[in-house]
Design a protein around this nucleic acid. Sequence first.
DNA 1: CGCATATTCAACCATTCAGTTGACGATCCC
DNA 2: GGGATCGTCAACTGAATGGTTGAATATGCG
Lengths: 117, 117
Amino acid sequence: MPTNLDTVFAALADPTRRSILTMLLEDDMTVTDVAEPFHMSLAAISKHLTVLVEARLITQEKRGRVKWCKLEPDALQTASVWMQSLGQFDPLDLDAFERFLETELEAEKRISPPKDI
Amino acid sequence: MPTNLDTVFAALADPTRRSILTMLLEDDMTVTDVAEPFHMSLAAISKHLTVLVEARLITQEKRGRVKWCKLEPDALQTASVWMQSLGQFDPLDLDAFERFLETELEAEKRISPPKDI
DNA sequence: CGCATATTCAACCATTCAGTTGACGATCCC
DNA sequence: GGGATCGTCAACTGAATGGTTGAATATGCG
């Protein structure tokens, strides 16, 4: 019985799925539009999207022939808080947290969406 | 060529490994001590520890016969910042972030260390 | 030295995962 | 109705994962 954290982290462990999430950060997209930049079959992308849905990282809504994919960032928060608890600073200590953010925003810049990360 | 985010998230996707990390949050431990609460072979735990080392989530240092495992939370930060960027709030907006933490600390309480999560 | 402890290695097994291809069900539109 | 498009399903493959057991390697100690 995989827990929520299991599925969320497993979903995030794949670079294709992380790319999809960053693409959806910009806008909602249809399944074929999501698949377009990748060199892999539509079926493969469809499977990736199912993984993201089951991790509750996205939702899908069928309108007519097409299915729209929408980022659902709430599921990230449990995982994010879990990770912060390992970061060994008190999440309520915002001073420590501000220091953490200052040092870590450099690292973020090194991450370049929408390509594979 | 798996990237850092690949290995970090993959490492976090396993509940045994997350349990190990929370145990190490309390104190450094030897390999056999880490293995003790789990119902699985020492070799299995040794493999899990290797995964955590390769994700740079822990370090190991051999002193005499025993090998000490130490939490290395820095590797979490890249991943954590990546997740925050998906959370759609500006990490520098601490007001928004404080609101986020208030609502999410409940969720954290539902996570009970040191058992399997 | 010789034994016990600590950890890893090697080989193996079952399961899951990421991808493919081809067929199929919906839906839109002429 | 009939053709084109959108998306999933089913079956398959190869590789990775999580676990086992038994042997091997270090190291500490009497």
